[in-house]
Amino acid sequence: MESVRVIPCLDVRAGRVVKGVNFLALRDAGDPVALGAYYESQGADELVFLDINASIEGRATLIELVRRCAESVFIPLTVGGGVDSIASAEALLRAGADKVSVNSSAVAEPNLISDLAQRFGRQCVVVAVDARRRHDRFVVVTHGGRRETEIDALEWVSRVTELGAGEILVTSMDRDGTKDGYDLALLASISSAVNVPIIASGGVGKQQDFVDGVLQGGAQGLLAASVFHFGELSIASVKTALSDAGISVRQTGEPDGDIHASRT
């Protein structure tokens, strides 16, 4: 059976969560590990840590953070930001990341994707594609949206999949931060262009947006940041909405509720 994943994304810098978070249940909501563990307990299927500005010193902090996360959070973890070589990917994977996400560095050096896939297996390689509408097509942008390229997003995802991407994280830079919903046209065209799992990102604001991301966008993963961090939506409510729409998604209440209680 095919099921979808609900994936909170934590923007981190210098080992701390960037966007403001306020949960009564958490003593230190700025600690990505504490927040990750909280999301796991709430039913998150996977976590993403993004540290787009990781400097040389920042990288050591990020690796330490991943290591601490692997010690107490037992769901898959993808880490993105500053992965530009086999060595930088290996450090994160050895620390306990399950997948690394490459973005600008893959645009600059596409062979990095095949190198990573050969070394670690394609299941470890997520290619993050930031796309923006330009007239009747989508182009790839890099460096957090600051640089536009002439690369067609659809051609790019086909190419990176051939090179060895095991998953595509698609962010609409037009929708990011708007809460107007995922860019469904972007998702649908990318989803039909490749045969690896797609994670939808950018713009989600309400429960129905997640449902649309699957039914209209064809996504297998549903990423969101602020709606979860600010407590506007709970992971459970999103999963209920998905389930009610006939979409298969992991449930963490019954029958394994007792198991949760016995966890030490």
Partner: peptide, 11 residues
């Protein structure tokens, strides 16, 4: 007829 890898939760 499925996307590979299977990268998901299943029962």
């Amino acid at each position: 007829g499925v996307r590979l890898p299977q990268m998901q939760w299943n029962t």
